Computed example of a mutant assay.
Amino acid sequence: MGARQEGPWLDDAAGRLIRPYTVSGGRTKPTATLDLLSMVMATGGAPQPHMGPEHSLALGLCGGPTSVAEIAAHLKLPAVVTKVLISDLVDCGALTARAPRYHTNPTDRSLLEAVLDGLRQRL
């Protein structure tokens, strides 16, 4: 068996040793209303003792406002599984969550063009 990688239950040769939905106990519906752009932040509370290591990893990523999408990417878990983990942490008071704020219509053509121009300048 290969050496252990970044997170728990990973192996160099085999990859993730447990299925992603095992992490959420098979649950696919979070109790909190979360969007991929929802911002979550740690409150200073601790996760419940019955929560797994992924809960602690997610909580550790939330020292400042962090999006659900960013947490999912760091944990290398599907977004829906990440939403369940985050909602568990919100339910126990370890995280707070707020919906994304849209100052304008996110599908506004001028906004999308401005984003594209900004990306082109950075590349």
Results as ranks from 00 to 15, higher is better:
Val80Asn: 06
Val80His: 09
Val80Ser: 09
Val81Arg: 00
Val81Lys: 00
Val81Thr: 04
Val81His: 01
Thr82Ser: 10
Thr82Asp: 08
Thr82Pro: 04
Thr82His: 02
Thr82Val: 05
Lys83Val: 00
Val84Leu: 10
Val84Ala: 10
Val84Ile: 09
Val84Tyr: 09
Val84Cys: 14
Val84Asp: 10
Leu85Ser: 02
Leu85Thr: 02
Ile86Thr: 05
Ser87Gly: 11
Ser87Met: 06
Ser87Cys: 10
Ser87Val: 04
Ser87Leu: 06
Ser87Gln: 06
Asp88Met: 07
Asp88Gln: 09
Asp88Trp: 01
Asp88Pro: 04
Leu89Pro: 05
Leu89Thr: 06
Leu89His: 04
Leu89Ala: 10
Val90Glu: 03
Val90Gln: 03
Asp91His: 11
Asp91Arg: 10
Asp91Trp: 01
Cys92Pro: 06
Cys92Gln: 07
Gly93Trp: 02
Gly93Pro: 05
Gly93His: 04
Gly93Ser: 05
Ala94Pro: 06
Ala94Leu: 07
Ala94Trp: 02
Ala94His: 05
Ala94Met: 07
Ala94Asn: 05
Leu95Thr: 04
Leu95Asp: 06
Leu95Glu: 04
Thr96Gln: 15
Thr96Tyr: 10
Thr96Trp: 11
Ala97Val: 08
Ala97Trp: 07
Ala97Arg: 04
Arg98Cys: 11
Arg98Thr: 11
Arg98Gly: 09
Ala99Ser: 15
Ala99Asn: 12
Ala99Phe: 10
Ala99Val: 06
Ala99His: 12
Ala99Trp: 09
Pro100Gln: 11
Pro100Gly: 13
Arg101Asp: 13
Arg101Leu: 15
Arg101Trp: 13
His103Met: 14
Thr104Phe: 14
Thr104Val: 14
Thr104Asn: 13
Asn105His: 13
Asn105Gly: 14
Asn105Tyr: 14
Asn105Cys: 15
Asn105Phe: 15
Asn105Glu: 15
Pro106Asn: 12
Pro106Ile: 11
Thr107Arg: 12
Asp108Gly: 05
Asp108Tyr: 08
Ser110Gly: 09
Ser110Glu: 08
Ser110Thr: 11
Ser110Asp: 12
Leu111Phe: 01
Leu111Trp: 00
Leu111Pro: 00
Leu111Asp: 00
Leu111Cys: 02
Leu112Ser: 03
Leu112Asp: 00
Leu112His: 00
Leu112Arg: 03
Leu112Lys: 01
Glu113Ile: 05
Glu113Val: 05
Glu113Phe: 04
Glu113Leu: 11
Ala114Tyr: 01
Ala114Asn: 06
Ala114Lys: 03
Val115Cys: 12
Val115His: 09
Val115Leu: 11
Val115Tyr: 10
Leu116Ile: 01
Leu116Ser: 05
Leu116Thr: 01
Leu116Cys: 05
Leu116Trp: 00
Leu116Arg: 01
